[in-house]
C-alpha cells in the first residue's frame, strides 16, 4: 500500500522533469508565444476535462453546463484581481469556492433528475448563468470584462493543473470516489449499501464545479478579457467531447482528450471552418469505432509498463 505513495512520488518527479524541459524551451524562446498560450490552454482544458470527468464519468451524471461554472470562476477571479487587488492565488481559491457553492446550489435541486433530463437541465442552467452575467453591468455586460492583468503563466497553469489532477485521482480512489462509482453503476444499490447518494452527487458537483471555476480564473487571467461568448453550451459540449474521446472514467483519458483536442484545434486555427468539419468527422468516426474512448476506463498507471513501479501489495 505504501507503494501507492511511491507511485505518486514518481509521477510527480516525472511531471517536474517534464515541466522543467518545457519551461526551459519557453525561456530559451524555442517555443514561441503562440505555443506558450496553447500550453496554458492545454493545462486549463485538462483541469476542465478532469473535473468534468468526476461528474460525468465517475458519478455518471451527464452534465452539459460545465462552461457556466467556468464562467463564474473567470468573472469572480477577474473582479477580485481588478477591483480588489487580491493576490492571484487568493483569486483562484475564491473562484473555486464561488463556483463550488453555485455547483451545490444547482446540484441540489437538479440532482434527482436523471439521464437526458439532467443533461438538458444543466445545459439550461449553464446558459442562464451566462445570460445573467451578460446582463450585469458591473462585470461589463455583453461587452465582457476588460483590463485583467495577465497573471496566468505556464508555470501557474501547470502547477494548478498538477494539483487538480492529483486531487481528482486521489478522490476517485477513495471511499468518496467509490461512492460516486457506485451511484453510476446502480443508484438504488448504492443507497442500499449506505451511500447517501444525494450527498455524494452534490459533492461531486461541488468539486467538479469548483475546479471548473479555477480553470475559469486561470483562463480569465490569460487573455486580458473575459467575454460571455467564451462560456456558451458549445464550450460545455467541447469539454464533454474531450472526456468521451479520452474515455469516461479514465483520468489519463481526460488528460489525453484535452491535450489532443486543444493541440489539433491550435494546429488548424488558420482554417476555422475546415477545422470544425474535420473535428466533426473525427468525433463521429470515434463514436463508430471506439465509443469507449481512447483509454476506456484504463489508467496509464495500470498499463504493464507502469506495473513494475507498483511492487508488492
Amino acid at each position: 500500500m505504501n507503494s501507492l505513495r511511491k507511485l505518486d512520488a514518481k509521477a510527480i518527479i516525472i511531471s517536474l522533469i517534464g515541466f522543467a524541459i518545457l519551461q526551459g524551451l519557453l525561456t530559451a524562446d524555442i517555443l514561441d508565444n503562440f505555443w506558450e498560450l496553447n500550453m496554458i490552454l492545454i493545462c486549463i482544458n485538462i483541469i476542465l476535462a478532469v473535473s468534468l470527468n468526476l461528474i460525468n464519468g465517475y458519478t455518471g451524471q451527464l452534465s452539459l453546463g460545465h462552461a457556466g461554472f467556468m464562467a463564474v470562476g473567470a468573472y469572480t477571479g477577474a473582479v477580485l484581481t481588478v477591483n480588489f487587488h487580491t493576490p492571484f492565488l487568493i483569486s483562484i481559491i475564491i473562484s473555486f469556492v464561488t463556483a463550488a457553492i453555485l455547483g451545490a446550489m444547482i446540484g441540489l435541486p437538479t440532482i434527482r433528475l436523471s439521464g437526458d433530463y439532467l443533461a438538458i437541465a444543466t445545459l439550461g442552467l449553464g446558459e442562464i448563468i451566462r445570460i445573467v452575467i451578460m446582463n450585469v453591468n458591473y462585470v461589463g455586460g455583453a461587452a465582457g470584462f476588460m483590463g485583467i492583468p495577465k497573471y496566468t503563466t505556464f508555470a501557474w497553469a501547470f502547477f494548478v493543473m498538477l494539483f487538480v489532477v492529483f486531487f481528482i485521482k486521489n478522490y476517485v480512489n477513495s471511499s468518496f470516489g467509490r461512492a460516486c462509482i457506485a451511484i453510476r453503476e446502480n443508484e438504488i444499490a448504492a443507497e442500499t449499501m449506505g451511500v447517501n447518494t444525494t450527498k455524494y452527487k452534490v459533492l461531486a458537483f461541488m468539486v467538479g464545479a469548483g475546479f471548473a471555476g479555477v480553470a475559469g480564473c486561470l483562463f480569465g487571467h490569460t487573455f486580458y478579457i473575459v467575454h460571455p461568448s467564451s462560456f456558451t453550451f458549445l464550450a460545455s459540449f467541447n469539454y464533454v467531447i474531450m472526456i468521451v474521446m479520452g474515455g469516461l472514467g479514465s483520468i489519463t483519458g481526460s488528460i489525453a482528450g484535452a491535450f489532443i483536442l486543444t493541440t489539433v484545434s491550435a494546429l488548424l486555427s488558420a482554417w476555422p471552418e475546415l477545422r470544425m468539419i474535420i473535428y466533426a468527422v473525427i468525433l463521429i468516426l470515434l463514436m463508430f469505432y471506439r465509443p469507449q474512448g481512447l483509454f476506456g476506463n484504463i489508467e496509464l498507471t495500470s498499463l504493464p509498463i507502469f506495473k513494475r513501479f507498483k511492487g508488492g501489495k
Partner: peptide, 21 residues
C-alpha cells in the same frame, strides 16, 4: 446513449461548418 448523443453533436457541427464552408 452517450455515444449517440456525441455523434449527434458531431453531425450538428458537420452541418453547420460544411454549410459555412
Amino acid at each position: 446513449r452517450l455515444s449517440v448523443l456525441i455523434t449527434a453533436i458531431g453531425v450538428s457541427f458537420f452541418l453547420e461548418y460544411t454549410m459555412m464552408y
